[in-house]
Amino acid sequence: MSVIKATNKLVTVQNQQLAQLIEAIGKVVLGKEAQTRLAIACLLARGHLLIEDLPGMGKTTLAQVIARVFGLEFQRVQFTSDLLPADILGSNIFERSQGKFVFHPGPIYAQLVLADEVNRATPKTQSALLEAMEEHQVTIEGETRPLPTPFFVIATQNPAHQIGTYPLPESQLDRFLLRVELGYPQQEFEKTLLKGSDRRDLLEDIEPVMSRRELLALQGQVKKVTVSDTLVEYVMDMVQKTRDSAHFVHGLSPRGAIALIRAAKAWALLHDRSFVVPEDVQQVFEAVSLHRLQSAGHSQTSSQEQIRSLLETTRVPD
C-alpha cells in the first residue's frame, strides 16, 4: 500500500488498526482475507452484506467475528419457511400486569444482525427484513421506531439451486451493497481448522479492536473520500459495458453505479487514501455487481467470468 499515499490525510484507518482487524478476524476465519476486507469495507460504507455459499463454509462465524472485533451488539435470526415478519421485527403483546399492549422488539434491534439462510424464508418475511434494512427503521401498527446505529445486516444465503429456497428477487438483492462468496478453505488452512480448537471457543477470546465511536467516525469519513471526474468516467464506462453486454438480462442500474462508487470509496478509505483510484473500483466491482446482474440463461460461474473479462476490457483512463 505504500505506493499510493494521500497528501492531505483524513483520519483514516491506521494501517496498524487495519492489520489488527484483519489479524483478529483471521484467527477465527482462516484464509479469507479478501472477503474480510470486503466485509469491513461494506460496514464502513454503511451497506449490508450478503454472503452466499454452501452451508458450513463459515458464514456465520465471519459475521460473529466481525461483531466481536467492532464490539457490536449481535443478533442472529435463522430464517425458515415458517418465520413471520413479526418474529424479526417484534410485536405488541398485551401485558396483563400493566393492562396494555407493550412493544416487544424483535431480533432486528441490534447493531449487527445476522440473517442466516435468508432465502429459506417466504418472500413476505424477506421483504420485512429488507425494508427495515433500507429504511433504518421499523413501523409497526403505525408507530415508527428507529433502528440502532450502526446498523449492519449480514445475510447469508444458500446457492439458489438448493432445495427449499425462495430466491431473493433482483429488487431486493439490490439492497445489499456487496455480495461475497467464501468458498472452500485452502488445504493448509483446512488442516489448521481441523486440528485446532472449536471456532466458537476462539470467538470468546477476541477483544474488540475498534470502538463504536471510531466506527461511526470512519463511516462519516467515507462520504468525504473524493471521486474525480476521470474516475466517474471510468465507472460510467464500466457500467455501460454491463448494459451493452448480451450476457446479462439488464445492466447495472444507476443505483448499482452509486453502490459501486460508494463501495470503492470505502475501499479507498480502508487503504488509507482520501480519493478513489481505478484499482479500488476494480477490487469491489465483482462484489458489487455479481448479485445485481442477472445472467441471461447461463450459469453463474460464467457470469463471474463475464464480469472479470468486462473488468479486463474496460480501459483505465490515462
Binding site: 505506493v3 481505478p278 484499482e279 483505465v316
Partner: peptide, 15 residues
C-alpha cells in the same frame, strides 16, 4: 501497461 491496469497496479508490477 495493460488496458485495464490502474496506474498504481502498473507501477507496482514494474517495481
Amino acid at each position: 501497461k495493460q488496458l485495464a491496469e490502474g496506474p498504481a497496479d502498473f507501477v507496482r508490477r514494474v517495481i
